[in-house]
Nucleic acid binder design. Structure first.
Lengths: 184, 184
DNA sequence: GAAATATGTCACAACAATGTGACATCAATC
DNA sequence: GATTGATGTCACATTGTTGTGACATATTTC
């Protein structure tokens, strides 16, 4: 398997838990030495940048596919949730990273307009659904956005905890999410 | 105001964002020098321990009050949610800290059985409500527990973001939470 | 205003994390 | 079996973080 990708995968998991974690921990998780890690990424910043690009690519691909699979905006929303869940830790870390501009400045990550526009497209779905009376207009769109992100976080934790039957989790997530935003 | 407490408050906020953050950042947030911080807490471990105790105390007091205010288990659950929200970042950080035993070992935090028993008491409420048919028995108790914790996190973010009317947030949180677990 | 208390500034040693060079080792390929 | 490519080991300079001592400067209390 691609060593570079193996490092990125490990970095995403470790840095998601603790953003200031030393590179040794990432190397440890890949069964490679820190020296090898540095052969692929000269810099910590370069590694983080690679993680960001990887997460962004994965997320955008998943979201595009989810939206392309149907015309029904309700089904689109459901598929978007599943797509986020499939991205898992990537999705969570990406949003954590991009919602903390201080961290970005420190690591020199450029502002990514692709992300913003893509994201904004997804979340224009909500007002559209509200106009069609499929979601109560009482519930704030910003609130729904927070619930969406957090539902993916809950789901990832559920998978990791092992306390919940793996097969049920996705349906459970969609059930809880759609009810939390006032559907059905 | 109590300087010691001021430091703890700052530490909770900063460490919640980045657990490995240098002490300078905490000191900066209090408008005190790092030297003064070290006069109150000789050690980083000691400061973290103080944060843990502070969070635990605040949380337990809030939860006890919430449960003592009524006999109705449904109202109790609602009050518990509001209590968690009032604890805010404290609640989130406490759960983050106590759910990562690796971090505890590193900092020498002792396992706290008071926390576990108190927590377990609260979450015995769920099965009780399910037996009374107030919550669907279809929904897993572990899942509900995750939703509860995350709903508080969402609410704190909503307060911080400023995108949502402050007055509405608590009611919004209770509405979304109770529907997400299958009530009403 | 003198004494006591709290805080700031500076310097410093100890340690941890980073990034790199030099060279060894191992496996695959020719 | 010699060569190449990927990785490991070790050493090293550099930088960031930590905890502490010595002393200066307010601020409060008597």
């Amino acid at each position: 398997m691609d060593t570079r990708q193996k490092i990125i995968d490990a970095a995403i998991i470790v840095l998601n838990e603790d953003f200031s974690s030393p590179l040794d921990k990432i190397a440890e998780r890949t069964d490679l030495s820190r020296r090898t890690l540095h052969r692929y990424f000269t810099d910590r910043a370069e590694l983080i940048e690679a993680c960001r690009e990887d997460m962004l690519r994965t997320w955008q691909a998943a979201m595009l596919q989810a939206c392309g699979s149907t015309e029904d905006p309700l089904l689109q929303l459901e598929q978007m949730l599943y797509a986020g869940i499939d991205c898992g830790v990537r999705y969570i870390f990406l949003h954590k990273l991009l919602s903390q501009p201080e961290a970005n400045k420190a690591t020199g990550i450029p502002q990514n307009t692709t992300y913003e526009t893509t994201r904004d497209n997804w979340f224009q779905l909500i007002p559209a659904l509200q106009r069609r009376q499929l979601i109560s207009e009482q519930v704030n769109a910003a609130w729904i956005r927070l619930l969406f992100i957090q539902m993916i976080s809950v789901t990832v934790q559920a998978y990791q905890s092992g306390d919940i039957a793996q097969n049920d989790i996705k349906q459970l997530a969609w059930y809880s999410f759609r009810r939390s935003i006032g559907m059905e």
